[in-house]
């Protein structure tokens, strides 16, 4: 529907060499509970990515091909240091192992302290480095379903950096598109500055907590309305895919 033809590949198949990242034009890390989120959401899978696929993944990202992390996939990208991924911008070698030990941002336990499932509205950040998202004209309406989606930063300076560099990709807004301003449940998890998704400085690695894949047809809309499909997110990002 979005214009791609997906393959579902298990990380063990990648490890065994049955598939390689370079065979694909775009990478999606989907939602779920990798390793049951024992030790924190996405932490254990992030280790796998760093230990087994560090170089391959770095090349993939460097090539400009899009990487999309949804929910657990977003958590994994953040905890693996691929988002916001400052490291490689500072002239450091792209191959340098991103150290998750000095991360600046994280996704932690929701303010309410538990998993929550509800529909939210998202606005694409106007100046975002993930410029492919600019083709999304309306808000996106889709559900969140997570317990650790509270986006937090290491101090005000980190937030300023993110915003200044235009690395915010999505924010939680109300149905009219007004910023949530932290109001629950429009901002469902307490994320700082209503941040729902971010990208890397090159704009090709994008992560978000909500699930656009749960709203690809209007019949899925709980308000029985049309438009504001999550499908638009996939259409936008796939437009950057290349082999």
């Amino acid at each position: 529907m979005a214009g791609g033809s997906p393959s579902i590949v298990h990380i063990n198949q990648l490890r065994a060499g049955a598939f390689r990242f370079s065979e694909f034009g775009m990478l999606v890390l989907p939602g779920g509970f990798s390793y049951g989120d024992a030790l924190g959401a996405g932490v254990r899978l992030a280790l796998d990515l760093q230990v087994f696929f560090h170089e391959e993944l770095a090349e993939f990202v460097e090539s400009g091909r899009p990487v999309l992390g949804i929910c657990n996939g977003f958590q994994t990208l953040v905890k693996a240091g691929l988002l916001p991924g400052y490291g490689r911008e500072h002239g450091g070698s792209a191959k340098r192992r991103p150290s998750s030990g000095n991360r600046d941002v994280t996704l932690t336990t929701n303010t309410r302290g538990h998993f929550e499932c509800r529909w939210v509205h998202l606005a694409v950040e106007p100046e975002t480095k993930a410029d492919c998202l600019a083709q999304i004209e309306d808000l996106v309406f889709c559900p969140v379903a997570h317990g650790e989606g509270n986006f937090q930063v290491n101090g005000d300076e980190s937030l300023r950096q993110l915003e200044k560099r235009n690395l915010v990709a999505f924010r939680y807004v109300d149905a009219r598109g007004e910023r949530a301003g932290g109001r629950y449940p429009i901002n469902p998890n307490g994320s700082v500055a209503d941040i729902a998704g971010i990208c890397n400085p090159a704009g090709n690695v994008i992560g978000l907590m909500p699930h656009p894949e749960d709203h690809i047809e209007s019949i899925q809309n709980p308000l029985s309305k049309s438009g504001r499909l999550g499908l638009s997110v996939f259409r936008a990002i796939i437009s950057r895919a290349s082999l």
Partner: peptide, 21 residues
């Protein structure tokens, strides 16, 4: 709300309904 009722994308009538869900 502490249960995921959306995953797999096939929930057409949900536990809560109406404009305010």
């Amino acid at each position: 709300r502490t249960y995921d009722h959306e995953v797999r994308g096939g929930t057409l009538v949900r536990p809560f309904v109406g404009p305010y869900m």
